[in-house]
Every structure is written in C-alpha cells, then in structure tokens.
Write a protein that binds this DNA or RNA. Sequence first.
DNA 1: AAAAAAT
Length: 673
Amino acid sequence: MPSGKSEGAKRPNPSRSPRSDSSSKKRRWSPEERAAKGRRPRRRGGVQSDFEPRSESRDTRRAGSWGRSDRDVTAQSSPRDRFERDDRRDDRRRFDRDDRPRFQRDDRSRYDRDDRPRYDRDDRSRYDRDDRRADRRDDRPRFDRDDRRTDRPRFDRPRFDRDDRRTTRVERTPVERTPVERTPVERTPVERTPVDRTSAPAAVVTATDFAELGVDAVLVDRLAEDGITTPFPIQAAAIPDAVSGRDVLGRGRTGSGKTLGFGLPLLTRLAKGRRPGRSPRGIILLPTRELATQVSDVLAPLGRALGLRTVLVAGGMSYTPQLRSLEQGVDVVIGTPGRIIDLMDRQALELDAIEITVLDEADHMADLGFLPEVTTILDAIPADGQRMLFSATLDRGIDRLVATYLTDPSTHEVDGAQASVDTMTHYLLPIAPADKKSITAEIANRDGRTVIFVRTQLGADRVAEELRNSGVMAGALHGGLPQGARNRTLEAFKNGSLPVLVATDVAARGIHVDEVGLVLQVDPPADAKTYLHRAGRTARAGETGVVATLVLPDQRRQVRRLARDAGVDAIELKARPGDADLAEATGAAETSGDYISSRDYEKLIAPRSDRGPRSGNRRGGFNRSEGGFNRSGRGPGGRSNRGPGNGKPNGKAGSGRWSSDGRPERTAYHSGR
DNA sequence: AAAAAAT
C-alpha cells in the first residue's frame, strides 16, 4: 500500500494511531491536494482552515474580517451586532466551526480558562455536584426518572397538540373535553375579552367593595375584620368572571393581590354549591412549599369562616396531618405538585370531584421542569371544571396549558407584567470583582429588611456566611435545606429577628414579607421575568422599595438588557465600597467586621421548643402589623441576635436541636482576617 | 440553575 507522498521517512506520523490490522492510516490530503482532486476544502478537524486560500489579503483579515459570507461582513460593519451575536452560543459555535482566525479563538479560551472563572468555576461545579448528590443521589433521581417516563406518553400528546393547536384549537378543545355544564348565559360574548390595560386602575375599577364583585357576604365580613375592604385592581377585574364560573387568565404585577383574586371566587363558589362527600372540590397548585404555605395561611381562615376545610399538601412536611385531613374530608387542597402526586399514588387523595383548579405562578408551572407533574395532576381532574391561571408574568409559555385545559378563558391584565413604576427604584451597580464581597456586606448592613438573591444553593450558604463573618446577621434560604430550617429561617425573617435573607430563586416568586426595603441581586437573574419576580419582593402593596443589582464588568451588557426587557428604568451607579452615593441610594453602611459565629446564628434559627407543625392561626400575607427590628448583629453575642420584643416566645433558643435535622455544623471559624 | 416526593 504505497503511501501517497513520502517525505523520506517510512514511519507513519506518530501522532496517528495505526489501524487495527496495524497497517498505517491513510494520510490526509493537504488542502492543495484536495483542490487538485476537485474536493472542497476541509471545514473542520484540521488546521488547514487558516491556510485556506482566500480572496482577502492577510491584512484585511487581521483587521478583523474573518468573514467571507455577507453575513459576517455585515456583522463586522456593525460592532454592536457583532458583540451581541457573540454572546449567543449558536453564533459562537458557528464562528468556531468556520474560519475564525486562530488568534481570536485562542484568545477567548485562554481568557476563559485562566482568568476569572478558574476557581470560580472549578470550585462551584465541584461543590455543586457534591451538593446535589448529597441531596438527591441515592433516592430521588431514579424515581424521578421512572416517574417521568410514565408521564412521557401522556406528555407526548401535548406535543402532538402543538402542531394542531393553531388550526384545530377551536374545534378540538370542546371535543376532547366533555361538554361544559355551564350555561351559555354565564358566558356573555361581550365579556369575552375584558382586558383592563391601565396604569391608572382607579379609573377602571367600578366596584368599591368585594360584595359588589360577587364575593360571599361571609367572606366580605371576614375580610373587613382584617381591614381589607377595597379590592385591588386585579381583584376587581378578575373576581366577577371567576365567580361566574368562567375560566380565567389573570395577570397582575407582583404584590397586587392575586391570591385573593382567585381565592375569594374559589371559596365563594364552593360555599354556594355545597355538596356531600369527602373528596376535595377545589385545588390550588403552587411552585414552592413556602408559597403553598403562605396561600394556605391566607385562605384557611377565610375558608373556615364558610365552613370550608383546606389542607396544605406539600413536601418536606409530615404525612400524618395531611393524611388525616384528607381522611376526614377537605374542600380545598393547596399544595405543590410532588406531594400531591405522591398522595394520589397512595390513594389518599382523589381528584375526581374537583370543580375548580387554580395554577398560581402559572408560567413557572409551565416550565419544563414542572410541566410533566402539572399535566399529570390536571389530567386527573375532571375536564368540565373551572380553571384559573394566575401570574405576574403570563407569557406565551402557558399557551399549551391554556389550549389543552382551558375553555374560552377571560383574560384580565392589570398593569401588565411590569414592575410598579412609581414605588420601585432600580439601580444597576457596576462594581469591580474584588469589591463584590464588601459591597454586598455594606448594602446588607443597611437598616430594615433586605432580601439578597443569588444563583445557587451553595452561593446562598456562602454569601450568608460571609455576611455573618463581616458582622451582618444573615440567613440562607434554599431548597437544599431541611424543610424545618426553611420554615424557621423564613419565620425569623418575617418576625424581624433576621434582617437579611440570602435566597435562591426559591424565594423569587410570591413570597410576601412586609417592609422589605431592598432587594439586592448579587447574581444577575436568569431572565427578565425572574428580574421582575425577585424585584417584586419589595415595594409590596403600596410600599416603596429599592432593587439593586451588582454588575460585574462582563455582565454589563447582559444586565442592561435584562433591565430593559423587564421594562425597568434603572439608574446606573458605579459603586466602590464606602461611596456616599451608594449609601444614599441603598442605605449601605460600613460593616463592623465583628464576626457573628455560626452558633449565634443557629440560636436565632433554632427550632421552637414547642413542637408540632404550625399553629393554625398564623396570620397570612396581608397583615402589616410587624413592628420594627434591630439592625444586624454587632459583634459576637450582640444583643440584636435575640429576637426583638415582638412577643415571639423565642427565649428557649440554644436548645442545640438544630444539628439534629441533619445539617452539618459549619466550620465557620476562619475569621475573615 | 432551581424547584418539586420520598420509600
């Protein structure tokens, strides 16, 4: 087998492995050879692309034009375009594949590898993995997967739907669903699209109290006891249709009162058509346990006033109370998808008597990670019932759910998906990477409640710990914590003993805490929707609030764009530690540096001495009765680590039971100096 | 990436 062109040496190129029969591998043609044989130049896998003959002179290429397609030339002529494209993976890939000059490529990868990300990335991914494994490894994934597989067939159907949806949507929906019982009278065509798009809600709101909206008189009285007499815009808009039994899509900005928007009509309708039987007739699905708990806390007392029983069905909590409630019979299930399916599998929960279904944070529930479970539940619910989807950001993502599960919904949007313009101030804070920790600490050290958002669970733990090391009392909240710790941390934050909450996006949506004066995004949000939801933890129900986002040099473009997409008019303010500007904008204050031991923190979050789940009479999200609280702890054992005098019997803290719920004692004893 | 069920 003569090898094409010998260079004198007989040995094959040592870098090429021999074939299995130990004959030498065929040598690649050089570009010139390829050309001579009428082949097109190789496009990948070789070094030759740089030597490819081109029309442009070398100088031209050096000047930055690697393009030979019109596209690239265009891109080159508009630097802005080029950069924007550069941000996107697809394009990056395209550049790689094509003939991007080598120096560019090397440049980038060297930057990636060496500079910023190295320990960041390595550390993080390693920890993340471990973290995840610790959380999930042995038990969950296998089941999850199996579960999902069984879901898939069911889930494939919607995909099928997707193609059909546009054309057959109108005919198809009625066919699949059994004819609706509701009388046509209730569905006046005129009411079909009462979209209230207005930033001046008062002009549109006609009803001045809940009774006029059709809410049950008992509920109206009960609400009045709490001082709730005037409906918020989203409530005024959505409640009448919802009470009449129509399917509803509701969008109202964060903190605008959506919970009552669907809760009141749900309870009103169930109270009206009382029906014997133990199976629940209403169900409300939510994406996080905290949110489910909160909604349950709001609606349980209202339901009780009507003689309607509710049950909170969410993971991480004891089965027994949930099972017992279901056994005794409940009217409304409020919960998260996983445990609901769990109890369905155990035959403890039947959904075949459900008349009203609500998806809160519906766009999130339509996310890929949630959709299978959500559809599993929706498929188990009789098709002729009423369905309501609510969120601050209702976007196209819910189309499939709407097409499959809703009939002729009426849509109510109030103030669109935007942040409230007049009560929220947004800052983008470009900072130097080296300042990130100290600026975070200074901002967190402000007076009042602060929520800090980070991207990962590990990040939440780390930032909270760093803050305590700088003398700022802060606690982490994320899905990797035991449920008990999650509850107690949030409770401490609500009652004021914990001024700073460092959270993942588990707390991005829906969670209501009064008087959160500032939201600080240490990691930028994943998208504009997340920006809005995170921001919505402040400036709730008429309060004012500040949203500050730290921006590292290479995040500027991305974050500006996010803010723009979120419809936010943000002020950019370059920040250095100690800046007067920063202090004025955010209330940032120099930290004491007096480190707070993990022990002092654990005391703060320690389990209450009286066991048992939550006492039923906890006030829900709509009270504004919280008093003030002390600022961050100053110094080890600082007095402010104790709860404030707000009546919480927290005295028995130090019980040491904290470690018993499986959380390893942190070795926080490396002081930052 | 996070969240959501644990036997």
